[in-house]
């Protein structure tokens, strides 16, 4: 093998290793879904979402889990837990509600909200306990 050919082989191996490392690094550091910049997979009323979970949790899980959901409803409760805002959508008569845990950036908008207001919120659904839970929520609009 000539010296030239040997150098060529070494360089191509180096390039392959480098590209491989870069690809695995970018995979490893893949960012979380940015809810604010993503368009929702599903848009619906808070009551429809809650009814679906109350009627058949397994079916609703397969439909909604890990999806970006845009939900419209009435604010029944506003609370703060560990410095993070939580907007609850529902009405006083229902047992369950939709609990929207706001993303850190959205916290400051909490002060402008009040109970009884209509609102549209976008977030990722993680499941159903007593309430349907959305995390990383972003406020779309309020009336």
């Amino acid at each position: 093998m000539t010296r030239r050919a040997r150098i060529k082989i070494i360089i191509s191996i180096l390039i392959i290793v480098l590209v491989g490392t870069l690809i695995s690094m970018s995979l490893y550091n893949k960012p979380h879904t940015d809810v604010a910049k993503s368009s929702p997979n599903i848009s619906l009323a808070s009551k429809t979402l809650l009814d679906d979970f109350e009627n058949d949790e397994n079916l609703a899980n397969s439909k909604y889990l890990e999806q970006i959901i845009q939900v419209s409803g009435t604010i029944s409760e506003l609370s703060v837990s560990k410095g993070k805002g939580i907007v609850t959508l529902g009405n006083k008569d229902s047992f369950g509600n939709i609990m929207c845990h706001l993303s850190a950036k959205e916290n400051e908008k909490m002060t402008a909200l009040e109970k009884g207001q209509s609102i549209t919120i976008k977030g990722i659904c993680t499941g159903y306990l007593m309430d349907v839970i959305l995390v990383k929520c972003v406020i779309i609009n309020q009336q």
């Binding site: 995979l27 490893y28 550091n29 893949k30 960012p31 979380h32 879904t33 889990l65 890990e66 993680t126 499941g127 306990l129 839970i133 995390v135």
Partner: peptide, 14 residues
């Protein structure tokens, strides 16, 4: 106590 597994938030999405 009930815990949703998908509610666990990691530093890295992977």
């Amino acid at each position: 106590i009930s815990i949703l597994m998908k509610s666990f938030m990691f530093e890295k999405s992977l």
